[in-house]
Design a binder for these strands. Sequence first.
DNA 1: CTGAAAGCGCTAACAG
DNA 2: CTGTTAGCGCTTTCAG
Lengths: 336, 336
Amino acid sequence: MTSIEDVAKSLGVSTATVSRALRGLPGVSPSTRSRVEQEAQNLGYVPSSAAAGLASGRTMALGVLLPQIERWYFSAVLEGVDRRLRAAGYDLVLFSLGGSGVNRGRVFHRSILRKRIDGLLVLCLELTDSERSSLLELESPTIVVGGAVEGVRHVGIDDSAAARDAVEHLIGLGHTRIGHLRGGGSFGIDFQVPRIRETAYRRTMADHGLEIRPEWEVFGDFRFKEGLAGALQMLADPGNRPTAVFCSSDEMAFGVLRAAVELGIDVPGELSVIGIDDHEFSDPMGLTTIRQSPNEQGDFAAGILLDELQGHPAADVIPVQPHELIVRASTGPVPR
Amino acid sequence: MTSIEDVAKSLGVSTATVSRALRGLPGVSPSTRSRVEQEAQNLGYVPSSAAAGLASGRTMALGVLLPQIERWYFSAVLEGVDRRLRAAGYDLVLFSLGGSGVNRGRVFHRSILRKRIDGLLVLCLELTDSERSSLLELESPTIVVGGAVEGVRHVGIDDSAAARDAVEHLIGLGHTRIGHLRGGGSFGIDFQVPRIRETAYRRTMADHGLEIRPEWEVFGDFRFKEGLAGALQMLADPGNRPTAVFCSSDEMAFGVLRAAVELGIDVPGELSVIGIDDHEFSDPMGLTTIRQSPNEQGDFAAGILLDELQGHPAADVIPVQPHELIVRASTGPVPR
DNA sequence: CTGAAAGCGCTAACAG
DNA sequence: CTGTTAGCGCTTTCAG
């Protein structure tokens, strides 16, 4: 492998000059710089990140820690983070818990601390106390996306407002019998977000003087399959079912839509359905939803970390990420 | 940060001994080893991967290069790779093209070659000649998952057989008017796989003496939205539409299912639908499909690379990954 | 079984 | 504007 010394020798300059020239640092004459660039190109020189990292203390890589990759929100945030990092010349080291607790200790107490990364993004993780403290002890900048962790900065939407907007959309259409499909529960995934949304649902219902029936509040784990099962249960009795369902995620809302097909319930004629997310499938499914943009959230969070690493002052207040009601074909006026 | 020297000094041994003890190398007395382990723990010592990488030439990290993260197949393979790597103590460095060509050159000609990784997995990428050759020149082991690249080892299913099995399932149910929703087309994503599946569809139809109508072969880009659009077009004319559709991916099949709902076509009474993948939503959607397991594929491919890095001889022949017909509710006998 | 010492390839003062 | 000189923190011969 050709090293910085090969380039330096072949040009009769010092390695320091090569290093400066290639990194765009000031204090190199234009002509030297271009000769160096040229020669580096010719020799196919690529700097070793290990050597650079050792010498400089910066690895030019950030880590992303998440509960699972195969899940719309997570992979979308990841995509946004990657986009931003790539543009800044940083690499992305991935730490997935893979939907289970296996190797979890290793990830926390070894991999992350291995000095391979200059900063860390954590996604929607429910942390144990010991994990939380080892996170707080990390000397490199850290940020959390999607579900707050006490003591760490957080990028995400206002979950309470998002849920309220969803429920009020239904109420605005005249619905009074409104069910709720709750998220949360999978191993290791943050449980605050589903709780916040549920609380907002209840409060909004109460604020409008509407009744909450326990049998209309069902668990769906944020997922299609569980959402379908929950919906089949909630909608089973034609004489006593809600006219609208608020789902804490779009995937669960797909489950409700599917349940409606299976049960022969017309949407939105007999049943209105609204979700949260604006999942990739929501547009073609005609699902009304509260849009959030995980792509942007990832990009934004990565940007904050990058700014800090580049010496810019840390923003002490992180703006809440936007959400937006997207009305499609799955919601309509209450049936008379 | 506490270094190996801190541990060595505090114990009155050499750094070499600490290094050997902690890495489980032979030639350390049991008692020394446990004292070292103990002290490392006490001091919270974590080795620097940069220093270790510089000294040893091994980074203990593999790279994954893929067109996009936010897509079921890719994120599922990624999850499998991550699982295997994590178990082996390797880190995973992610390179996503993010669905576009931006930064593509940089990824190929810099990031990947930056000596940050000991090996590389490439997913379903359509490569330019120059990219292909820079891949072949990589001194570290490389493997391709999901779509073959000439000259590089490949892990994946037999796409031709998978498509044939799907079509023959429909034929076995008595269908003769069988449409096809084709994949492929997105920027940078492999285009061999969709072509192989299409060819197999045509050949199977021909082998059974069945007619292929151009208007029944529609493009869907492997995706829900495009699949829906294609299906609406294919199924528009009630007097002249297929009784079954073979989709090159489950996501497109969801589009057909959705189109059927919109058009009031009964599935499977009037229309049978089969896909390829066994997407996470296929079970709750009741979609008949040809299952493949991207998780396993990623795990398997990572395993091959790891074996090689650990000095085991490279398998010269990589077994084809299995696929399997999963019959659910979306296919049934041809309407009479 | 253990230690000494020479780097790995780069960066970062410090001189000039 | 450019070169010299120390390391960064580990691994790895080579001795003992």
